[in-house]
Structure formats: C-alpha cells, structure tokens
C-alpha cells in the first residue's frame, strides 16, 4: 500500500453488513462519498452513522461487504497498514477528546511529535499555524478545562488536521454549541476542506445546518442509506422518511413509541393481577 493517500480520495462502502452486540446496525449498506467535497451523513440517533465512520477508519470490521478508500481496501488491512492509513485521517470525536493533562499546544503537537522527526522550533511554528486557523493561538498554553466546550472542539479540530490529513471526519461537530460557536464550526469545516483539499465527512443529525456547508448528503435510517443527493434535492424529496427527518416531524416512519404491546392490553393485565 502506498505510504500516503492521494489528497482528497473518494470513499466507497459496498454492501456492508455489521451487527454489534447482537443488533444489526448496518444491513447491506452501500455509500459513495465523493472526493474533495464536504459530505454530510445524516440520520436519527442510533441509526448507525458513527458505525459508518468507524468502518472507514478501520476501528470496526464489517461482517460482510467491502470498504474502500480510493483503491485501498480498508476492511482487510493489517494493524500496521491501518496505522499508516490513520496518519492520513483526521478525526474530530464528539466532545473533542482532548488530553486533559496536556496543554492545547501539546495536544496539537502530539501527532506531529509522534509521527514526524521534525525539530522542535518547526513543530512550534506548525502548531501555532494550526491554532491560528481555528482562532485559538492565544490559548496555546491553556489547559482544555480552562476553555469552553466550543473552543475545546476547535482545538480538537486543529489537532485532527495537524498532519494535513487526506480525509477529515467530524462526529457530531455541532452538538451542544451556541449559535456563534456553531457558525464558527460550520465555517471552519468549509475552510479546512478548501485549504487542505481534503475529503470531509460530517456526521450529524442537525438537518438545518446541512444546507450551509455540505455539498452532498446521505440519510441513513434503520441501517440503510435511504436517500442521497445535494441538500436541495433532499428537501424536495417525496420519500416519507426523508420528509419526516428534514421537517422534524415527531411521528412517522420513525415511530414516536418504542416498540411495545398495545397499551390497553398491558393496562388490563395489570388490573387483573392486583
């Protein structure tokens, strides 16, 4: 396998099935993520969005099916190949996952120190540039706990792109952000995509945001990709589930109630047993 992925590769999942803890999470799932664009993977909570990401990063192996990044087959990689692959991936996890015992500077410097033999002054310059990109150069010497949640996530973004990855993943980058931080995050995702010429994958349930930054969308529900296309084409969709999701209707194909027996039956039975 090549040392470094070509910049902005495409990602393909072919007929992937995987079950976790006895539950079928993805069932015969296929997805094409176009190269060099910002793709949003949408879906209700628990639909398997994060599983899709973990399949592409090689943290999970599918029970059947294939996972490709360009012409590399991820699901058959050895541990060493995966390590090499991951040096070219930047991942922003849900709450940033910064190391609390390191300063912001050291957090961003960590992957550079670990994977390159650059001299310290050069590392310093690189890290400050990354922090400048996310607007937090001034917070370099602070610890993550001294910053807000939104700022933590921006530091984590700087860390994720420290090695100029070919693919950037964002796992729920907007969850719990105030409107200002949200705007910042949105802009950063686009900026990073253009500046580093990466393929970006944004995992979110925030339909309203998608139109602002995504070039391409994919909606997952019940372990299947139910719709794909540009954000505009989705809002015009006639698919019932897409409509429920896009318009935020409480009940529809995704039911409001957890599967249960008829309410009347259950209540009657209780009365009898008393």
């Amino acid at each position: 396998m090549s040392e470094i992925l070509a910049s902005s590769p495409s990602i393909t999942l072919k007929n992937v099935s995987i079950s976790l803890g006895g539950r079928m999470v993805l069932d015969d799932f296929s997805l094409e993520i176009p190269a060099g664009q910002v793709t949003a993977v949408l879906g209700p909570s628990g639909a398997g969005k994060t599983t899709v990401m973990r399949l592409i990063t090689g943290q999970l192996k599918p029970d059947s099916g294939e996972v490709w990044i360009d012409s590399e087959r991820v699901d058959q990689m050895s541990a060493r190949q995966l390590n090499r692959l991951r040096r070219n991936l930047g991942v922003l996890l849900q709450n940033g996952a910064l190391f609390t015992d390191l300063t912001c500077f050291d957090n961003v410097a960590l992957p550079i120190r670990e994977h390159t033999a650059l001299p310290e002054p050069l590392i310093r310059r690189l890290v400050l540039l990354k922090l400048q990109t996310v607007g937090l150069r001034g917070a370099a010497d602070l610890y993550p706990r001294e910053l807000s949640g939104g700022m933590n996530r921006r530091i984590a973004m700087a860390r994720a792109m420290a090695l100029d990855p070919a693919i950037m993943f964002y796992d729920e980058p907007f969850a719990g952000l105030d409107p200002i931080s949200l705007g910042v995050a949105r802009r950063l995702i686009r900026d990073i995509n253009q500046a580093l010429r990466t393929t970006s994958v944004v995992i979110t349930h925030d339909v309203g945001e998608v139109a602002h930054f995504a070039d391409y969308c994919c909606i997952i529900s019940d372990g299947r990709a139910v719709a794909e296309g540009t954000p505009d084409s989705l809002s015009d969709s006639s698919n019932e589930l897409v409509r429920q999701f896009v318009n935020g209707l409480p009940d529809g194909p995704v039911a409001f109630h957890y599967p249960a027996r008829e309410l009347a039956d259950e209540l009657l039975e209780q009365d009898l047993s008393r």
């Binding site: 849900q94 910064l98 992957p111």
Partner: peptide, 13 residues
C-alpha cells in the same frame, strides 16, 4: 469515557 483512548487509536498512537 471521554474517547481519549479512541482519539489516540485514531491518531495511530
């Protein structure tokens, strides 16, 4: 719990 171990794994550390 805060995914720091995951983050290391994903950074190939």
């Amino acid at each position: 719990a805060t995914e720091q171990l995951d983050a290391l794994d994903l950074m190939a550390i």
